[in-house]
Design a protein around this nucleic acid. Structure first.
Length: 645
RNA sequence: GCUGAUGUAGCUCAGUCGGUAGAGCACCUGCAUGGUAAGCAGGAGGUCUCGGGUUCAAGUCCCGACAUCAGCUCCA
C-alpha cells in the first residue's frame, strides 16, 4: 500500500502520550463533515477508544482518508467473519485485511460457498451492524492467546501467533460474541458500517503458498452510506462495461486464438490504432533527439548468459534449441542496444546517444497469468536506451520528464511519480547509488514534480522512476518507467572517448513512456470506453447517403475526405437510413456526414457526431477542414457544432 | 503453474430425464429508396473445443488435454 502523505490542509494538533484519542478527535472534527473513524498520530492509526501511545501530531481520519477507509474496511472484514461464524460455527479463520477497494477474509469452511450464500451472510452482517456492537481492543499474553485459539480450533490463528516475534504485543478485538486476533486498528463499533456488500469468492492458498491448504477467500466492500455503496457498484459495472477484451471484440480491433495463446492478432481496425499510436510516439521522440534502431530478436544463449538474463530471467524466456546451439528470443531490448552502442568507438560528442527501438519482445508468461492486452507473451514497447556520462543524468532525466508530459498530453490522464531507491540486494557501490538517487530527485525538483518515495524498491542494477497514470475511472496504471542502469555498460564493457582523450564508462538510462503499446491500447480502450478520439479512431468519418440517388455526391464527399488524409468510409449499403446511423453509432465513429436532397442541392453535409445528434450543416470544404483540424490537434472528441444551420 | 468455473452458428445465449441441435443479432439474396439508433421476406451457416471412456445411443455422464474467465502465485 502507498504510504499516504499527511495532508497539510487538514487540521492537526500536538498531543501527548496518554491523551484520550476520542477527546482529541472531538477537538479536530469539524462540524457537519464526515464522521471521524480513527486518529492518526505521526502516521500511526490509533483506535478512538485508546489512549495515544506516543505523543506527536494528530489528525482525524474519516472515510475520505486512505487510512480511514482501511480502518473502516478492516472492521468490515471482522463483521463479515463474525457473520460467517454465526452461520458456520466450524469456520477456521485465517486473515482478513483491507485492500484497495474493500476487504477480504480467508477462511476454511466445511463446504464450498457459492454466491447463493451471499444474501444470508449479508443479512447477518447487516444484523451485526444494527446491533451496533462496541469493538473492544484487548491485550493478551502470548500463552493465553495460544491456548484460547487452540481451544477454539483456530489453527491458522495459532500459527500466526507462533510466527510473531517473542516480544510482540498480542492484541485481540472483541465485538459481541466474536473475538479475533488482530493488530487493529478498528472502528469504535459495528454500527458505522451502514452499507456492506459481498462481491466475489475465490480460492487462495494459506500464506500464498501453493503447497499449503487452499482457503476460500470472500471479497467484500462497504461504505458509510447506501448511496456511496450504490455509486461504487455503478463504477464497478462501468468498468465491466469498458472491459477492453469485450470492446476489442465488438469493435473488431483484435483477437486471440488458441494456436498462439498470449499473442495478439491485430485486426485491420485495431492495427490503425496501433500504427497511429506508434507513429505518434516515433515522431515525437525523433523531435526530441532520439534515433531509431532495430536489433535482432533472436540471440545465441551466450548473449543472455552474459547479460544476466539467463540467470535472472530464464523462466520468462522462450528458447529455441538447435542441433549444437541454443537460441533465446529477446524479452528486453537492452543487450541489443548495448551491442549497437559498442559497435564502434564512441565520442563524448555523440552523447547522450538516445537509441529508441520498437522491438518485438517475447516473454513466457505462465498459463493463467495472461489477461487480454494487459498481460501478453508478445509485445512492443516504446523503448529507448540513452547512453550518457554520469554527470548528465539529472539534465537528461529532466528532458525525459518533458517528453513524458508531451506524450501523455492528448490522453488527458494525470499521473503520480514514484522514486524507488537502492534495494538490499543491489549491485554496485553505495556511493554510486547515492549519487544516482540524488540526480533523479534533483531532476524531479528542478521540474517541480511531486513524487512518492518507495524505499528499497529499485531494480538491482539501479534506482528508477515509475509513473502511475490515472484513467477516466481513476484507476492507476503503471506505464512510464525511467531506470538508471550502471551494470549494462560494465557487462558489455561500453566506453566512450572523453574530452580528455581517456576512455570513460557511460551510464544507461532505460526508459519507456507508453510502456507496451499493446497494453497501452488496452488502457486507452477502457479509458475512452472504446470511443477513441478522432485522431486514433479506426474510422474517422462515415459518409451516410440517405437514398441511392445521393450516391454520386456521397462519393465525392468521400473522395474529398480521403484526399485530405482522413480515414473516411462510405456506407453504400441499401439499409434504411436509421440503420446506417445506428451502425456508425455502435461502431463509435466520431463523425457522420449525412448526404440527402438538401445537401446535394447546396453541396453541404449535415454533420452528426457520436456525441451530438444534430451538429448542424457545413459547406463541404469547411467540414473537411474542421475534421482535419480536430485530428491534427489530437483533440479528445469530435468538435461540437458552432453554427446550427 | 495452482484452485474453481466455463467452452453449443461470426456474436450473445437456450437446449428438460442420455434418444443425431435452436433463438436473436450478424451474414447472403430479393423486395422496399427510406432525413438522424433496428423495414419486410427468404436463405445459408454446426466435427456441440479436442482426444479417450461408459452406453444400444453422449451436446448431455466419466477421464485427460487445450483455451478462456475469477482468484492465487508470478511479473513491474
Amino acid at each position: 500500500m502507498d504510504a499516504p502523505i499527511g495532508d497539510p490542509e487538514r487540521p492537526s494538533v500536538k498531543v501527548e502520550a496518554g491523551a484520550s484519542a476520542l477527546e482529541v478527535a472531538a477537538t479536530l472534527a469539524p462540524h457537519g463533515q464526515a464522521e471521524v473513524l480513527a486518529l492518526e498520530v505521526d502516521g500511526e492509526v490509533v483506535d478512538l477508544e485508546r489512549r495515544v501511545p506516543r505523543g506527536g501530531t494528530a489528525r482525524a481520519l474519516t472515510f475520505d482518508d486512505p487510512l480511514g477507509r482501511y480502518t473502516f474496511w478492516h472492521s468490515s472484514a471482522h463483521i463479515m467473519a463474525q457473520a460467517v461464524s454465526r452461520l458456520f460455527p466450524e469456520v477456521r479463520l485465517a486473515i482478513g485485511p483491507p485492500i484497495a477497494e474493500g476487504f477480504y477474509y480467508d477462511m476454511e469452511l466445511p463446504r464450498p460457498l457459492t454466491e447463493e450464500d451471499f444474501p444470508a451472510i449479508e443479512a447477518q452482517m447487516r444484523r451485526i451492524v444494527a446491533e451496533d456492537l462496541p469493538i473492544v481492543r484487548e491485550e493478551w499474553t502470548r500463552q493465553a492467546a495460544l491456548e484460547h485459539f487452540a481451544r477454539q480450533n483456530q489453527p491458522y490463528k495459532v500459527e500466526i501467533i507462533q510466527d510473531l516475534p517473542p516480544d510482540a504485543a498480542i492484541t485481540c478485538y472483541r465485538q459481541g460474541e466474536f473475538l479475533d486476533l488482530c493488530r487493529g486498528p478498528h472502528l469504535r463499533s459495528t454500527g458505522y458500517v451502514k452499507a456492506p456488500k459481498l462481491l466475489s469468492l475465490a480460492g487462495a492458498y494459506w500464506r500464498g503458498d501453493e503447497r499449503r491448504p487452499m482457503l476460500q477467500r470472500l471479497y467484500g466492500t462497504s461504505f458509510p452510506t447506501e448511496a456511496a455503496l450504490t455509486a461504487h457498484l455503478a463504477l464497478l459495472e462501468e468498468a465491466r462495461r469498458r472491459d477492453h477484451r469485450k470492446l476489442g471484440k465488438e469493435l473488431d480491433l483484435f483477437t486471440f486464438e488458441p494456436e498462439a495463446a498470449g499473442f495478439v492478432f491485430w485486426l485491420p481496425k485495431g492495427m490503425v490504432v496501433y500504427r497511429t499510436l506508434e507513429e505518434y510516439s516515433r515522431q515525437l521522440q525523433l523531435s526530441h533527439g532520439y534515433v531509431e534502431v532495430s536489433t535482432p530478436w533472436v540471440y545465441d544463449v551466450s548473449l543472455w548468459k552474459r547479460s544476466g538474463h539467463f540467470d535472472h530471467y530464464k523462466d520468462n524466456m522462450f528458447f529455441i534449441p538447435r542441433e549444437d546451439e541454443q537460441l533465446g528470443l529477446k524479452p528486453m531490448n537492452c543487450p541489443g542496444a548495448a551491442l549497437a552502442f559498442g559497435s564502434r568507438v564512441r565520442s563524448y560528442r555523440e552523447l547522450p546517444l538516445r537509441l529508441m527501438e520498437y522491438g518485438a519482445l517475447s516473454r513466457y508468461e505462465r498459463s493463467g497469468t495472461m489477461h487480454g492486452l494487459f498481460r501478453v507473451r508478445g509485445f512492443v514497447q516504446d523503448d529507448a536506451h540513452i547512453f550518457l556520462p554520469e554527470e548528465d543524468i539529472a539534465a537528461e532525466v529532466g528532458r525525459i520528464l518533458d517528453l513524458v508530459d508531451e506524450v501523455y498530453r492528448p490522453f488527458g490522464m494525470s499521473y503520480r511519480i514514484h522514486l524507488s531507491t537502492r534495494p538490499d540486494d543491489a549491485m554496485g557501490e553505495p556511493q554510486l547509488w547515492e549519487r544516482a538517487e540524488t540526480a533523479l530527485a534533483e531532476a524531479l525538483a528542478a521540474h517541480g514534480r511531486p513524487y512518492d518515495l518507495k524505499p528499497k524498491d529499485g531494480a538491482f542494477y539501479g534506482p528508477k522512476l515509475d509513473f502511475d497514470l490515472f484513467d477516466s475511472l481513476h484507476r492507476p496504471w503503471q506505464c512510464a518507467t525511467i531506470q538508471l542502469d550502471f551494470q549494462l555498460p560494465r557487462t558489455f564493457d561500453l566506453t566512450f572517448r572523453g574530452r580528455d582523450g581517456q576512455e570513460h564508462r557511460p551510464v544507461v538510462l532505460h526508459r519507456a513512456i507508453l510502456g507496451s503499446l499493446e497494453r497501452f491500447i488496452g488502457i486507452l480502450t477502457e479509458h475512452y470506453a472504446g470511443a477513441f478520439p478522432p485522431w486514433l479512431a479506426p474510422v474517422q468519418v462515415r459518409v451516410l447517403p440517405i437514398a441511392e440517388r445521393h450516391g454520386d455526391f456521397a462519393r465525392e464527399v468521400l473522395e474529398r475526405l480521403v484526399a485530405a488524409g482522413i480515414r473516411a468510409e462510405l456506407d453504400a449499403s441499401d439499409e434504411k437510413f436509421g440503420q446506417k446511423i445506428r451502425r456508425a453509432q455502435l461502431e463509435k465513429v466520431p463523425y457522420m456526414a449525412v448526404v440527402g436532397d438538401r445537401e446535394v442541392e447546396s453541396r453541404t453535409v449535415s454533420v452528426r457526431t457520436r456525441l451530438e445528434k444534430d451538429a448542424g450543416s457545413r459547406d463541404l470544404d469547411a467540414f473537411v477542414a474542421e475534421v482535419a483540424d480536430v485530428i491534427a490537434r489530437r483533440l479528445a472528441s469530435p468538435a461540437v457544432a458552432v453554427d446550427h444551420a
